[in-house]
């Protein structure tokens, strides 16, 4: 009888039970599971931003202002881990290259005119493939879920979709800026080889163009082919 009364009481009060304050709740985590995606898991993708300089010897290439010839790159990268040392992957990227042209006597690119300031901006979309070698862990190859220290070697192809020349001239203290498009002396596509040296999500990037950016039918030499910069990924 007492039990029945308690039961009725508990059914009645159980309505309140759902209002009890849960102070702590833990759903058991399966720590034995290996995630499929992660910096040192089977698959990994990351978004990266890079900035650097375009360089090349003045004698061989068009004379550009080294420190002012820059590139900005945005990329999306996928990496497939093969083992603790080797991986491969591909990039999809967007590059914006700006070539500040030195205003010197005998200048031929993109025209013979000298300006107060002049640069050529080339934007391209591209894709690349690379192999990755992780090092420092050669003999035991143990690291946690980190990219670790690595070298990437790869090749890429780019499609030039935008190109313009920007000139600034001073006339009576007045600065006049002009944008000119429609040059036909650029190739639509070019190919590069690149090298990355990375420590986790930061890397130093070195690339060299393997094909000319300017058409070979032009009378002037090509633009400098080397780019060197830093890249940070997220």
């Amino acid at each position: 009888m007492v039990k029945k009364l308690i039961f009725i009481l508990t059914i009645f009060t159980s309505i309140n039970s759902f209002g009890q304050t849960t102070l702590f709740s833990l759903k058991t985590i399966d720590f034995s599971k290996h995630e499929k995606w992660g910096p040192n898991q089977s698959n990994y993708s990351q978004f990266g931003v890079g900035y650097g300089f375009i360089v090349g010897s003045a004698e061989k290439y068009i004379n550009i202002k080294d420190a002012n010839a820059t590139y900005i790159t945005l990329n999306l990268r996928y990496k497939k881990k093969l083992n603790n040392v080797f991986a491969f992957g591909f990039d999809i990227f967007h590059n914006a290259n700006t070539y500040q042209i030195k205003q010197i006597n005998g200048k031929v690119f993109p025209d013979t005119l000298n300006h107060f300031k002049e640069y050529v901006n080339e934007s391209d979309l591209g894709t690349g493939i690379f192999i990755r070698i992780n090092f420092y862990h050669f003999n035991n190859s143990k690291r946690g879920n980190y990219l670790g220290n690595f070298i990437d070697l790869g090749i890429s192809g780019s499609w030039v979709y935008s190109l313009y020349q920007s000139t600034t001239n001073k006339i009576n203290m007045l600065k006049i800026k002009e944008i000119t498009r429609g040059f036909d002396f650029f190739n639509k596509y070019y190919y590069s080889a690149f090298f990355r040296f990375g420590i986790d999500k930061t890397s130093i990037f070195l690339a060299t163009r393997l094909s000319n950016l300017l058409k070979s039918t032009n009378t002037f030499p090509d633009l400098p082919p080397f780019s060197l910069g830093m890249e940070v990924s997220f």
Partner: peptide
Amino acid sequence: GYLSSSEIIAVESVSPLV
């Protein structure tokens, strides 16, 4: 004996859990 979850509740009534 492997747990799937655990909880702690503050007992505020005589029948705190159903």
